[in-house]
Simulated assay, not measured.
Amino acid sequence: MTPISATDNVAPAPAKRRRGDVLVRAILRAVIEQLETLGYAKLSVEGVAAAAGTGKAALYRRWSGKEELVAAALAEVLPSPAEVPRTGDTRADLIALLACMRDSFSQHGTAFQVVKAEAEAGEALLAGVVQQRVVQPCTEGIRARLAEAATRGELGVAATQPMLANVGPAMLIYHTLTRGIDIADDYLDHIVDDLILPAAR
């Protein structure tokens, strides 16, 4: 007979409950996954909570309901122009900022398309998220890089005109509306080399 060890009758330790940022990331990841697999209409707070391994009370403590939860999840997966590093090379920095904004239009495209197609006021929800998370920081980043270049004497005083920083983001938005979200690198080069920098000089 095999002897019984001291650990044979010990129940396995329960999984540690996720909290704080770890829990928030799990919840927002579950939202994106359910948007892509179930769609907006079938997504529910209860379903997200179950997929994230938590109770729905944990979600309602942070978000008032489904729409706010989805907006937070979409914002979380968007790249942030505010995190684009400063290299001291004005041209390279401007292109990097525009590339970050360009990439935001294509990443997790299915989730964004589902919200736009299925949610009431879906376009307004998306516009608010993209404006706050991407367009505004990108515009501010361009404005700051141009002002720094003017201070260093690399560009003229025209570089400090606030409207000039809107040119790049406006061109990208126009492209997505009229020609789609596939934006080539040379289009970004064209915006910087043929529009922004000549005007700034």
Rank of each mutant, 00 (worst) to 15 (best):
M1N: 07
I4L: 14
P14Y: 04
R17S: 12
R18Y: 04
R19P: 00
G20S: 13
D21N: 12
L23W: 03
V24N: 11
R29H: 13
Q34M: 14
L35K: 05
E36C: 05
E36Q: 13
L38N: 13
Y40D: 01
Y40L: 02
Y40E: 01
K42L: 13
S44I: 05
V48I: 15
V48P: 06
A49W: 06
A52I: 09
A52C: 11
G53C: 08
T54D: 08
K56A: 05
K56E: 08
L59R: 07
Y60P: 01
Y60I: 04
Y60W: 07
R61L: 13
G65D: 13
K66Q: 02
K66D: 01
E68Y: 02
V70Q: 01
A72L: 11
E76T: 01
V77W: 03
V84C: 03
V84Y: 00
G88L: 04
T90I: 07
R91T: 04
R91S: 05
A92W: 02
D93F: 00
I95Q: 11
A96H: 07
A96L: 08
A96S: 15
A96V: 08
L98Q: 06
C100M: 03
M101L: 14
M101E: 15
R102A: 05
D103C: 04
F105K: 03
S106R: 13
F112M: 11
K116S: 11
A119M: 12
A121E: 15
E123N: 08
L125Y: 00
A127N: 12
G128I: 02
G128S: 04
V130P: 00
V130H: 12
Q131H: 12
Q132S: 14
R133W: 02
R133I: 03
V135S: 11
P137N: 11
C138Y: 02
C138G: 05
R145N: 03
A147M: 02
E154A: 14
L155H: 01
L155Y: 01
G156I: 09
V157S: 13
A158E: 14
A159P: 03
T160M: 10
Q161W: 04
M163L: 14
N166Y: 11
N166V: 08
N166F: 10
P169S: 10
M171Y: 08
I173E: 09
Y174F: 07
T176D: 05
L177C: 12
T178S: 14
R179D: 06
I181G: 01
I181D: 07
I181V: 15
Y187C: 05
Y187I: 06
Y187R: 10
D189F: 10
I191Q: 02
I191P: 01
D193I: 09
D193L: 12
L195R: 06
A200V: 05
R201S: 12
